[in-house]
């Protein structure tokens, strides 16, 4: 079976490799790029631990082939902080105790990041709906929802241009 050349930009950095077409994006991110913040939980498209932002949209990277992401841009949890400063959504998860074991957290952060890019002021219902593909076995979700609300406030307060990503955010 022919291997394929892929070139994927992750957090602004290009990664090129020859891969088997069956390689999953999550394994490209973890094993080829060496970015292990993105987790594999269920491996069956249910839990969202593997969530990354692909071309402006949050997706489950265990259910995407690396070859499908060829020439595309990805943001992973490692790409949220800027200049050593955590992204407001990360700060808010710390402040509001939005995590316990942390296994789901990178996925929760990426979906929340995507939500807040397209909707600066989400209602509780919108937050819960956006996070409905991300499962957490520890927190009971309450503190995660509080964290996302807090992050939304923080982001509108800061109006920090630095936080606006160059990727177009869709849907």
């Amino acid at each position: 079976m022919a291997k394929k050349d892929v070139n994927i930009t992750i957090n602004g950095k290009e990664y090129s490799s020859k891969v088997e077409p069956r390689l999953l994006l999550v394994h490209f991110i973890r094993d080829v790029a060496g970015l292990t913040g993105t987790h594999v939980g269920c491996d069956t498209s249910n839990c969202g631990a593997c969530t990354v932002v692909l071309d402006g949209k949050a997706v489950k990277s265990c259910t995407v082939l690396a070859v499908q992401a060829d020439n595309k841009r990805i943001t992973t949890v490692e790409g949220l902080a800027r200049n050593g400063k955590l992204h407001p959504v990360q700060e808010a998860f710390v402040d509001k105790h939005g995590l316990q074991c942390g296994y789901c957290t990178s996925g929760m952060l990426m979906t929340s990041f995507w939500l807040l890019q397209k909707n600066h002021n989400p209602t509780e219902k919108e937050i819960r709906e956006a996070l409905s593909g991300n499962l957490c076995r520890c927190t009971g979700y309450e503190n995660i929802v509080k964290a996302v609300k807090e992050a939304a406030k923080e982001i509108s307060a800061e109006q920090n241009k630095d936080l606006v990503r160059e990727e177009p955010i869709e849907a």
Partner: peptide, 9 residues
Amino acid sequence: IADPLIRNM
């Protein structure tokens, strides 16, 4: 359908 992440793909 499914969840927002699956609907994005």
